[in-house]
Design a protein around this nucleic acid. Structure first.
Lengths: 150, 150
DNA sequence: TAGTTTAGTTCGTGTCGCGAACTTACGTTT
DNA sequence: AAACGTAAGTTCGCGACACGAACTAAACTA
């Protein structure tokens, strides 16, 4: 137990810091964070609803609603699955792909700004550690796996 | 620009990781994250609505609603301000204080679990860097100041 | 005293996400 | 083949959350 008692709370503060900036970036692209995350998962490949629900830690009604709203904005599209007539796949429309790519680039450009006041060496170190913490899952955009409970 | 293109997204992943765990801890204390943050800010001292709105980055209707809901649960109380009959202060009830303290302790105990798979040396390093990033604001619970725009 | 600013509230709207109940389709069993 | 259990999504009703606009009341200012 090397951590001081305040470390847990500091982590919350860090998360809030990131979330606020992320929210702002999403808003600049006229997206909510939920729709942004969906778009990022779908912009380069179609995915099934249950897969998305698992990645985003959403139950089925949550996924349905999110896809509904995003589809209504013309960013995403439901398609039929090949081998299962119950299932459907979610893919991005050209507009969605465009917005998703722009958002991704903007996140890459602007989010690291929260560490601007660190020295270059510390920035580098921080980046490596964050990558280690989030898991070696550097796979593409953003995963969301997290053993839900303990 | 030392950061790789994926760093911004990695930060989002980290934030999601923290948020999910935090959400679970809050749920275990029967709190939403919004109410938890409010409670933490108020459990050791009364604060005014506008101060809270600033700390939580909420507009006035958002604050009113949040305090409404939290007050309805008996965790928080509105009181009159000394020098301004328009203003009101928000303070915690004994129940709110109790729950807030328990939540705070639980956050301190369980949130650092996300770095469990790091080596002790890396953990220590990570903790220091996160503290540096969130600002020297180690003041008590959790602040929320963030220059809203870029 | 009149006009302006400030603190909070109320109202209407939209996003978000849950549980419960349901429909449809798949897979298996008998 | 008919029947059952299971899995994928949807719909409904609910509550939390937070915004802009419009409002009230108190404080400040001229």
């Amino acid at each position: 137990m090397t951590e001081g008692p305040g470390f847990g709370n500091t982590l919350v503060c860090l998360s809030v810091l990131i979330q606020r900036r992320y929210l702002q970036i999403c808003a600049d692209h006229d997206l909510t964070t939920a729709q942004a995350q969906l778009l990022c998962l779908v912009k380069d490949q179609p995915r099934g609803m249950s897969e998305l629900g698992h990645l985003l830690s959403l139950a089925k009604p949550g996924m349905s609603g999110l896809v509904d709203r995003t589809e209504r904005r013309g960013l995403v599209r439901r398609g039929a699955s090949e081998h299962d007539r119950r299932a459907c796949t979610v893919s991005s429309t050209p507009l969605g792909k465009e917005i998703g790519d722009a958002l991704y680039a903007d996140v890459a450009a602007r989010l690291p700004g929260i560490v601007d006041h660190l020295s270059p060496a510390d920035r580098q170190l921080f980046q490596e550690l964050v990558t280690a913490v989030t898991g070696e899952t550097v796979s593409g955009p953003c995963r969301g796996d997290d053993a839900p409970a303990r």
